[in-house]
């Protein structure tokens, strides 16, 4: 795997995830957009909601690790070196941040749309 071409990564991910890749991409882009628009509309972060979203995010991080362990027929207990800890942190981090942003955005829009002040 010399000359690592980003396109190759993309092709591989597409092969690995199939339609799930597009669903994930829509979730990532949609979630980020919803989050950013919410930030602008509310002119800042709502601290209480953020804390709650982060708590749910923790569960999201754990779920991401469990999923990863399942599809790879192994466990993060097999970690043998720094690259492994990096991967574990990455998977956990992505699960946490992704879930937190989605939960924050969903909760924010729910309050916005139902017209209440949080």
């Amino acid at each position: 795997m010399k000359d690592l071409d980003p396109l190759i990564f993309f092709a591989v991910f597409q092969e690995m995830l199939g339609p799930l890749l597009w669903i994930l991409l829509v979730l990532v882009i949609g979630g980020t957009a919803a989050f950013l628009i919410l930030l602008i509309k509310e002119k800042g972060i709502v601290a209480k909601r953020l804390v709650r979203a982060e708590l749910v995010g923790l569960a999201g991080g754990v779920l991401a690790l469990v999923l990863m362990a399942k599809v790879s027929s192994s466990g993060f207990t097999d970690a043998g070196g720094p690259a492994d800890w990096f991967l574990i942190a990455l998977v956990f981090g992505l699960g946490l941040i992704g879930t937190a942003i989605l939960v924050y955005a969903a909760a924010g829009w729910k309050t916005l749309l139902s017209g209440q002040k949080s």
Binding site: V12, S73, G80, G81, A83
Partner: peptide, 20 residues
Amino acid sequence: EELWISWVMKTMALKPTYIS
């Protein structure tokens, strides 16, 4: 180095790479 990440690649990424 014996690594989990290399195992993850073998079990998760290699077949999609091969098919691509």
